[in-house]
């Protein structure tokens, strides 16, 4: 897994928060647009910004192309199904289905390109800092930061195991041996993670780390969740019906 993008100076925290917040904002906005013209303009703007980021060296072109391709795998599935109505004589072209597929394709690409442009050059640590600064509950923010910290460690473990397996002549294929070897690899990664967690726990205790529960993260009472969920669903349903 490549979580580390080319070394770039990490932007200051307010700018990180602004970039991630804007990416979330445009995702919400663009995912509800129904005008093909506006969505096409958003796609073009996103592509230009992403290409500019690529020209500046913060988003490698091969990475940009790979991400566009992966986003459009789902779009390809849409075009294979939505515009075709199965009737008595076989599949028939449906204008309504094609329009729907076009809208979804434009939305998917506009959101993806916009987010790629806005978040270009940010690595996992920067994303974690930005997300933590955007009001995540403190325990969730700590979980995010710790996960990002351990990703590199466990990815190194995976690479070492992978190298050792290949050095012993393992070549993956669609066979029983591959299942056994990959299960070993996965079990080793999990064991490594659990042993490391044990060491972290010992180290924290040795430093007299207080493990008493902190009141920072408390789930609201069930009726508040129910009321909030109902209000959110009602509001978004009204918006959806009125658009």
């Amino acid at each position: 897994m490549r979580t580390a993008l080319p070394a770039t100076a990490t932007p200051p925290a307010p700018r990180l928060r602004l970039r991630l917040g804007t990416a979330v904002g445009i995702s919400v906005l663009l995912s509800q647009l129904t005008s093909p013209g506006l969505l096409l303009a958003a796609c073009a703007a996103g592509l230009l910004l992403a290409l500019a980021a690529s020209a500046n060296g913060v988003l490698p072109l091969h990475s940009l192309l790979r991400r566009i391709a992966s986003v459009n795998l789902f779009v390809a599935m849409l075009w294979l199904t939505l515009p075709w109505a199965l009737q008595g004589g076989g599949p028939q072209w449906s204008e309504a289905g094609a329009h729907h597929a076009l809208l979804i394709s434009l939305r998917t690409n506009a959101v993806a390109l916009g987010c790629m442009a806005l978040l270009a050059g940010l690595d996992a640590f920067a994303i974690a800092r930005a997300a933590a600064g955007l009001g995540l509950p403190s325990r969730l923010a700590r979980l995010l930061v710790l996960t990002v910290r351990y990703l590199g460690v466990l990815d190194d473990t995976r690479r070492r195991i992978d190298l050792a397996m290949r050095a012993r002549g393992f070549r993956p294929g669609a066979n029983r041996r591959t299942v056994a070897v990959l299960a070993q690899q996965l079990a080793l990664i999990l064991v490594h993670a659990m042993l490391r967690a044990e060491r972290v726990d010992l180290a924290l205790r040795a430093r007299a780390f207080a493990t008493a529960p902190q009141p920072a993260t408390r789930a609201p009472r069930p009726w508040r969740w129910a009321a909030g969920t109902a209000a959110l669903c009602l509001g978004s349903s009204l918006l959806w019906l009125l658009r």
Partner: peptide, 28 residues
């Protein structure tokens, strides 16, 4: 998060990272 004690955060993060890394394993 409520069920996850403060002391279990490193274990959850490590297992989360382990499953994230494992999800990059490709099987032909």
């Amino acid at each position: 998060l409520r069920r996850l004690g403060e002391a279990q955060l490193p274990l959850a993060a490590l297992l989360g990272a382990a499953f994230f890394v494992a999800s990059t394993i490709h099987v032909p």
